[in-house]
Design a protein around this nucleic acid. Structure first.
Lengths: 238, 238
DNA sequence: GCCTGAACCTGACAAAAGTCATCTTTTTGC
DNA sequence: GCAAAAAGATGACTTTTGTCAGGTTCAGGC
């Protein structure tokens, strides 16, 4: 499990345009670039652990990472799945707290690490960048509010349908009339996203499959009928 | 339901020390002060509505306000209860989105309104203030992550116990060996905080009461045995 | 290619929690 | 101070979902 380093200049990174670093001045970007360390991780490796102190910011270049909390019985709840272009671990860094969640690689990943001093330096010098960060954080918070309300009042079936649609939006590869969720998620991980038991996810998925809403393609899920799925996600079919 | 205006100088506000405005330079504070409008609201009045555009920031001077989302069936989920010193509606303002929640007065309130131009002006000119705001927002986000995991995997009994403890921490008036939650919450509101049905809350509260964990004092709840309540909040009593 | 463990699936069952109906108590408006 | 409405309480019942136990299939390491 040796860490393999690699290097790509931030200015040439294909995900720069999707990133919060987009719009940074060349000097600021090179300040980030000159201090970053880029590492390749294998599936299953951990990026950071709940309870430890952040020392910088992670920036995804490739792969997928799940960020999750473990409860007393060892059940996971997945808060977020990070994809290329996303920041990782910024919440604890900016609130100056310990990590409250653990990050584990779902699909082999390339991740750059920016020491906090350098990140904060750019942040402090650059009010427009700071403002973009605030905006992004507050947007994220709105998503979490939605999730809270969903978790509080929707059934597992509705939540699963809603999460499949969400995954389709974020990781979907569009085909003709259908869309493949480009994420190798186990049933267990899906259960940890929805907030339910693995068995329940399995049963509901096979329901959705026999109703022609989804299909399985290897380890991945294809959404065949997003409209019907949306009806399952809403409350009480009118 | 006429709005009654009042006025208190920010610099003299008794909640300044608990507020994010604490630490602002006299000039910045007077910039806020000179543009604010302060209004008294009665219980039941709305401060802002889901789906509308924020035009500024609310800052609580007195009373309590619930911020909640309504689902399709009209069930409320309470995201937050604001108390004096708290900001209200900053999330949508900073993410430049519409309000995603409604704010309604729980206990007669005095709330100051700061137009967004003036708030943003101070924010932009003052990196230290901006940093404090970011820190607070990210801290808040951590609380929401906890709530998500709680909602996903804890039973209603555990969640009710945990929320009573949380309310005690935030609104508790300490007595000898017990603590009164200084919040006139209906059973329905408590259900909307916990994410369950009103009947379930009523039943569980009376359980807790007969076990000597809590007592009722008018519309308020007194926590008699925080330790036992904490054991109810955790999973599986060891 | 085979073995081993992990992931996936299915059924039976129990527990938790929601719903509905009804009744009592408290609050509020006039 | 009274009537109406809202809040609180309780019981009966149903549905949802979790748990456990037992299978099968799949994938990776040797």
């Amino acid at each position: 499990m040796a860490k393999v380093e690699f290097n790509i200049a931030c200015s040439l990174c294909e995900h720069l345009k999707d990133s919060l670093f987009n719009g940074l001045s060349p000097e600021d970007l090179s300040r980030i670039n000159n201090h970053k360390t880029c590492v390749q991780y294998k599936k299953g490796q951990n990026i950071f652990y709940e309870g430890t102190r952040p020392t910088g910011l992670y920036c995804m270049n490739a792969g997928k990472v799940k960020v999750y909390k473990n409860n007393v019985q060892g059940k996971e709840f997945i808060i977020y799945i990070a994809k290329p272009g996303d920041f990782l671990g910024y919440r604890a860094l900016l609130s100056e707290e310990f990590y409250q969640a653990t990050a584990t690689v779902l699909e082999d990943a390339k991740i750059c690490f920016i020491p906090k001093e350098n990140f904060f330096e750019v942040l402090q010098k650059n009010p427009a960048f700071m403002k973009r960060v605030v905006k992004a954080v507050c947007h994220e918070m709105g998503i979490m509010e939605d999730k809270l309300a969903e978790l509080a009042h929707k059934s597992v079936r509705e939540r699963l349908a809603a999460n499949l649609l969400m995954l389709k939006e974020t990781y979907g590869m569009e085909g003709e009339g259908s869309s493949l969720i480009d994420l190798a998620l186990s049933r267990e991980d899906l259960a940890s996203i929805v907030g339910t038991a693995t068995e329940t996810v399995i049963r509901l998925l096979s329901d959705f499959k026999s109703d022609g809403l989804i299909a399985f393609e290897g380890k991945k899920i294809r959404v065949l009928d997003a409209k019907k799925l949306a009806r399952q996600a809403d409350l009480i079919v009118a």
